[in-house]
């Protein structure tokens, strides 16, 4: 379990993290969201024991990060931002070094190393110098060092940052694999990632928690929640369709994208407008390429609460 109480980090001229309190339970994958400079990395660094809080406290696995730092670090697997590694070492040498520091010995050391090498598919690069690896492989090595001691808590700072879409997908799959029995905290500013892997999202802005909910519930705060998006076959019907949609009582407003011949009807609070719109389309003889119900746009929620 991770628990923070009034966690605060002040620097000389600004407060990076301001009175942050939350708890994370096993099985949860917590996404830490926020604009750059919001305090995500600072919070994670305090949890990982790299920097000390100015006020408040944090505990990981029941160990206070300040008074029991070694025990707390022992239950954490941590991937720092940008996944810094020792570039001059070979992958095998580096993972062995981390396994030693993690106190793994004998049989267990060998099986854990074999497991992470297997799990992250590092067989082909074991003897390669880390400096010569591609970004994707380097990130995998970073993840391997974080899980080599099979920690109950994983703290990953922007694990997919700078990777290509395939590599991103791969890292997400790894996180999902590990999610069942661990506590995982990841920070990101990629919102689709939160929807893809997180069971819960905390949004922070200017060092404070501004939202703490499931990704679905956050998306539901969007004004696009239950909005209906319609794409027409014939762009010529756009104006007529717009007028007809706007005339419906439950529709609050209509947004038009001429390039895509798309209309998005936003509902008045609490109304379901899908049936009315589909009926309207039939009645007016609108030819539809696509009709769908939106669950809400996380990026819009994100912008509206962090701006």
């Amino acid at each position: 379990m991770i628990k923070t109480e009034h966690l605060t980090k002040r620097y000389a001229d600004f407060t990076a993290v301001d009175d942050v309190s939350f708890e994370v339970k096993p099985g949860e994958v917590l996404g830490f969201l926020g604009p750059n400079g919001a305090g995500k990395t600072t919070t994670m660094r305090m949890l990982a024991g790299f920097i000390a809080p100015s006020a408040g406290r944090a505990s990981v696995g029941g160990f206070d990060v300040e008074s029991q730092p070694l025990q707390a670090k022992g239950v954490i697997g941590y991937l720092p931002e940008g996944a810094p590694l020792y570039g001059e070492m070979s992958v095998r040498g580096f993972l062995g070094f981390i396994a030693d520091l993690r106190g793994l010995t004998g049989e267990r050391r060998a099986t854990r190393l074999a497991h992470v090498i297997d799990h992250l598919q590092l067989h082909g690069v074991l003897e390669q110098t880390i400096d010569t690896l591609s970004k994707g492989f380097r990130r995998r090595v970073g993840l391997a060092q974080a899980i080599v001691h099979d920690p109950p808590v994983l703290i990953l700072d922007e694990p997919t940052d700078g990777l290509d879409p395939n590599q991103k997908q791969e890292v997400r799959r790894l996180i999902e694999d590990m999610a069942r029995d661990k506590i995982i905290v990841i920070s990101t500013h990629i919102l689709e990632e939160v929807e893809a892997v997180c069971t819960r999202a905390i949004i922070i802005a200017r060092g404070r928690i501004v939202a703490d909910d499931t990704p679905a519930a956050l998306a539901a705060r969007s004004r696009y929640h239950n909005a209906v998006s319609v794409q027409l076959v014939d762009a010529g019907q756009l104006q007529a369709a717009r007028a007809a949609l706007g005339a419906l009582g439950e529709v609050a407003s209509v947004e038009v994208s001429e390039r895509e011949a798309r209309l998005t009807a936003l509902p008045r609070a609490g109304h379901m407008i899908l049936p009315a719109i589909s009926e309207l389309a039939d009645r007016q003889g609108l030819k539809l390429k696509e009709l769908h119900l939106e669950s809400g746009r996380l990026d819009e929620v994100f912008r509206s609460i962090t701006a």
């Binding site: 660094r45 070694l70 954490i76 106190g103």
Partner: peptide, 14 residues
């Protein structure tokens, strides 16, 4: 400079 100090100091060592 490389940031590896963060990796090092978050291992269980003093």
């Amino acid at each position: 400079k490389s940031g590896s100090i963060e990796l090092l100091m978050t291992q269980p060592l003093t």
